[in-house]
Nucleic acid binder design. Sequence first.
DNA 1: ACCTGAACACCGTTCAAGT
DNA 2: ACCTGAACACCGTTCAAGT
Lengths: 186, 186
Amino acid sequence: MANSLQDVVRVALQVLDTHGLEFASMRRVAAALDVQPSALYHHVPNKQTLLALMADEILARGRRTDPNGPWDEQVSALCHEIRDAMLAVRDGAEVVATASAFGLGAGEPEQRLIRMLSDFEHDVAVTGARTIMLFVLGHASARQMHEQASATGAITYDPSIGSPESFDLGLGLVLSGLRAALPVRV
Amino acid sequence: MANSLQDVVRVALQVLDTHGLEFASMRRVAAALDVQPSALYHHVPNKQTLLALMADEILARGRRTDPNGPWDEQVSALCHEIRDAMLAVRDGAEVVATASAFGLGAGEPEQRLIRMLSDFEHDVAVTGARTIMLFVLGHASARQMHEQASATGAITYDPSIGSPESFDLGLGLVLSGLRAALPVRV
DNA sequence: ACCTGAACACCGTTCAAGT
DNA sequence: ACCTGAACACCGTTCAAGT
């Protein structure tokens, strides 16, 4: 039976999760779909686009409805949501990071962050959202890259490198910086 | 005449700067050295290692002696030094970012940052240095990736994306967060 | 609409052999 | 010590042709 774009993205994510980004080739995805490599180009114009769709799917799978409560708790919850979603797939953070350079994947979460920071001056909200996003993405990415590098034996594993504790500490630092920029309530 | 490892790294950086990371292949570096591809493996065990050496060289070229003055001015100066060094070479930030996952390249600057934060509790200094490093690296990386993506025509160019202004604002946010954690002087 | 089969222009890496 | 030449096992992408 014929495959849909959805099938392609889903199977591509499976290949990514089991083999890692390095071996997530178009040819492997095609093989996993029991199809010739050229068949993929009916669904997608190139690999870059497929990676972007995968990034969207990774983030979509973790999506929860925004909580209410103080802005900092909202932001913290969203950051954990994004982090968990990326860590749920092997090399997921790396895929989201590269896709976000094309304005895809990470753009939507950043908009949600900006909305949560609407009590701030607009410039501060925009800068804050981007800084938080860079931290969340970079932190998860560093963790997964270190995992992969140490699995290959290229380096000795350091459990502190992408730990939840260091994530909360770093995020706390940025949130604390934001609090200092909070305009006084009228 | 025979090439040294230094020559290889230097020419590899030239290839990177003129063609971009995507086309910085071992074969192209070999061609630029007027040598067979296999000859590179006399100097370097694999491409990953060559990239790590390139990352070190990128950062070394921007290295200045640490200034004295208040800690936040020292940190800010160092961050600009690292950023400028990475931006001086096409896709330089991306190369440093991937190399840093292997404990190379970005490790030394991070140690310098920790030293500048020695007035803080050790945990705070370590977290602060890493968070700052993630920001500087991620910010420069996002800028260069966006430049490359928009040059390919895949996306419309947005000059605000890796601007010096947004860099200073984001860095200021993190520094402000650190100030809140500063222990009171005795 | 979805796919096959064959081809093109590339990769990184290995290895025996040369000087 | 530094390099050649040939090979191996891969890539992403294109394109005519099939159903």
